[in-house]
Design a protein around this nucleic acid. Structure first.
Length: 691
DNA sequence: AAAAAAT
């Protein structure tokens, strides 16, 4: 049973000048007592029964070592064993294993397999599944290496007047998000407690001057940050923050940092660091996913003799076997939120019936920030209703996080969700990677994610540290092409149990069926969201849906239906001709065309320029008493709905200027196809795929 | 107009 591999590139190792003497000589030779011949089979049995955390079996580690480094003794698998070998500082080990501290015993595969290599000073690309302790894998040896460096002065512990210079940075960790940087810092401080090592952060959204002052006053050995702020601080000579003695550069979520969006900034940061030919440094890259596209970048950035530590077997996927993954085809885009509520209610109902289930703690992922907001607002409104507060759902916290919120709110949401026993975090991809929220039972992805890696990382927010969890994907049938292309090989099973996923929400539903109740709760919740937010959500989803759907026409149709029937809006957002041109929507029915002047008058519907947070300003979306007015109190679905479905048959008159079909046209002509040859391939791809 | 990330 081959669980992990260490691959070596090149022939020789460039050992750092400061590297401690012969590490292999210090390695533990004794194997842990549970390395009995039966260990491997009993280990796997234990794993499936209790879904215990997949630790590295000593026998496996031995096998790996034998294969790659025949002369070396066993790899250490217990944190406590690191003490006897003088490999890791006693204080660090205490911090890790003491019950009143981190309370960990056994190392994970990725931790065991990278420790010696990192202490040695080698460059590493480490790949391991989500939630298997990658952070600790690079923190422990990196902090140890700083302690090993004789030029590092840690004697200043506790002395108030003494200070370490802000130019003493020995290791730098780059993270793709602010929250992840902060989370890594929290863990680093736990590991470094009492050692005298100073850990600092540099992230955006915080007061630059205050953060800078802190680094200047206290000094810094390990700096953790996000690309923008790091670049800002390191490029400004006046800050005094610099890293002339940098030994270690770590890219957490390396593939993300090396992709299109981040690579230029990361390169700039590297250019601000000392020349690696003058000051030898190691570079460490960690991630659960390393797509082929970035391998070239990885090779360019690492030394030629870097090692690839991969604990994900070649024949398996970087998702956990113990995470059931389900895909739900929703009738329309408007069915997602009811289906989410139903999922939560079903789970809580089962708990009420005495089933031993953990409290429902879910993250709902959306592809646009505005959709995240509408959904969070709607669920927050639902949670305020008396019906909800009298149900078994009453303790659920509804939280929101995305990059458009102020950093203070983001941090508060993340903290509250960490603490929450049960609830739903409505999230964009800010939390998709690396974030460690304890006890997440469900990850629900609404809409097909932008790529396979995103799916895997989002899913990885559950089933962490040996716990169980489940993944759900709610998607519109119109996304079938990208679904197959991006997620085709992943083990998703179709689930049809959620009734509200399939209900026709363009018609009235009886309020006394379970589905009717769920739908009316969502409808009431959405009614309390402001119109400007709904319009932004439409526009945001337009951006992703036109890319995700098999045809643009289908995307528009689905979006319009959601906007009218579920958001309860009367007038479609207008798209400027320029935007329509850009998006290739010129020949698509159902698009509301604006002339570009009106949008400025109608504040709520603006697009260009208004990059502010979701402003509640001038509630101008509510025009002419269309929405929310009147005595809708009871949400009488009957008449209202009937009226609306009438609209769909073309009785809307001037409702949308882009043709009289209002987006509900079911006609067969796919006008957009001929204009976009790329479609034909995707369409033919779709032909042999049926639901 | 579509995550994120400096002001």
């Amino acid at each position: 049973m081959m669980l992990g591999t260490v691959r070596r590139f090149g022939v020789s190792h460039a050992l750092r000048a400061t590297a401690p003497r012969s590490i292999s000589a210090r390695l533990a030779t004794q194997l842990p007592k549970w390395q009995a011949p039966s260990t491997i089979s009993s280990l796997s049995a234990t794993r499936s029964l209790h879904s215990s955390f997949p630790r590295l079996s000593a026998a496996t580690a031995q096998a790996i070592v034998e294969e790659t480094e025949p002369s070396k003794p066993a790899i250490i698998t217990e944190f406590s064993d690191l003490a006897g070998e003088n490999l890791i500082h006693n204080k660090i080990i205490k911090n890790i294993i003491q019950p009143d501290r981190m309370n960990l015993k056994t190392m994970t595969e990725v931790q065991s397999l990278t420790l010696n290599e990192i202490v040695k000073g080698d460059d590493i690309l480490a790949q391991a599944k989500t939630g298997t302790g990658k952070t600790l894998a690079f923190l422990v040896p990196t902090l140890q290496n700083i302690l090993n460096d004789p030029s590092v002065d840690v004697s200043k512990v506790g002395r108030r007047s003494a200070r370490t210079a802000p130019s003493e940075i020995r290791a730098l960790i780059i993270s793709p998000t602010r929250e992840l940087a902060e989370q890594i810092a929290v863990e680093a401080r736990k590991v470094a407690f009492g050692t005298g090592l100073i850990v600092q952060t540099a992230v955006g959204g915080t007061q630059k001057r205050a953060g800078l002052a802190k680094i200047q006053q206290e000094g810094c050995h390990l700096l953790i940050g996000t690309p923008g702020r790091l670049k800002d601080i390191l490029s400004d000579p006046w800050t005094g923050v610099s890293a002339p003695k940098l030994n270690t550069l770590i890219l957490d979520e390396a593939d993300r940092l090396l992709d299109q969006g981040f690579a230029p900034e990361v390169e700039e940061i590297q250019s601000l660091l000392p020349d690696p030919t003058k000051v030898d440094r190691q570079t460490l890259m960690f991630s659960a996913t390393v797509p082929r596209e970035v391998l070239q970048m990885v090779r360019q950035t690492l030394k030629p003799n870097f090692k690839h530590v991969n604990t994900v077997r070649e024949d398996e996927l970087p998702t956990h076997q113990r995470v059931p993954q389900k895909v739900v085809y929703t009738r329309g885009l408007e069915n997602s939120l009811p289906a989410l509520l139903e999922l939560a209610q079903n789970w809580q109902a089962r708990r009420d019936n005495g089933e031993e289930l953990r409290p429902f703690k879910a993250i709902a992922y959306f592809n646009s920030t505005a959709e995240t907001k509408v959904s969070a607002d709607a669920f927050n409104a639902v949670a305020r209703s008396s019906e909800f507060r009298q149900s078994s759902m009453r303790n659920m916290k509804m939280l929101e996080i995305n990059s458009r919120l102020s950093q203070a709110v983001r941090t508060r949401s993340a903290d509250n969700f960490r603490k929450a026993r049960e609830g739903i975090l409505f999230s964009s991809d800010v939390t998709a990677r690396g974030m460690d929220f304890p006890d997440v039972t469900h990850v629900v992805q609404i809409g097909v994610p932008r790529d396979r890696e995103t799916y895997i990382h989002r899913l990885g927010r559950t089933a962490r540290a040996g716990k169980e969890g489940e993944g759900w994907l709610f998607m519109h049938p119109g996304e079938s092409d990208v679904y197959r292309k991006r997620l085709g090989r992943l083990p998703l099973k179709v689930d049809t149990a959620l009734e509200s996923a399939n209900a026709d929400l363009t018609r009235s539903l009886s309020n006394d069926t379970p589905v009717g109740k769920i739908v009316s709760q969502i409808t009431e919740g959405l009614a309390q969201c402001d119109n400007a937010t709904k319009v932004k959500s439409y526009m945001g989803q337009l951006g992703t849906a036109t890319g995700n759907f098999n045809s643009k026409r289908e995307a528009i149709q689905a979006l319009n239906q959601m906007f009218i029937s579920s958001y309860n809006m009367q007038t479609l957002p207008e798209l400027s001709p320029r935007l329509m041109q850009q998006m290739g929507l010129n020949r698509i029915d159902g698009v509301s065309v604006g002339d570009g002047t009106r949008q400025r008058r109608e504040g709520g519907f603006s697009r260009g320029g208004d990059r502010s947070r979701f402003s509640r300003d001038g509630d101008r979306g509510e025009r002419g008493g269309f929405s929310r007015g009147g005595d809708r109190g009871g949400f009488s679905r009957g008449g209202e709905r009937g009226e609306r479905s009438g609209f769909s048959r073309g009785e809307r008159g001037g409702f949308s200027r882009g043709g009289d079909r209002g987006g509900f046209s079911r006609g067969g002509d796919r006008g957009d196809r001929s204009s976009r040859p790329r479609r034909s391939f995707e369409d033919s791809f779709n032909d042999d795929f049926r639901f």
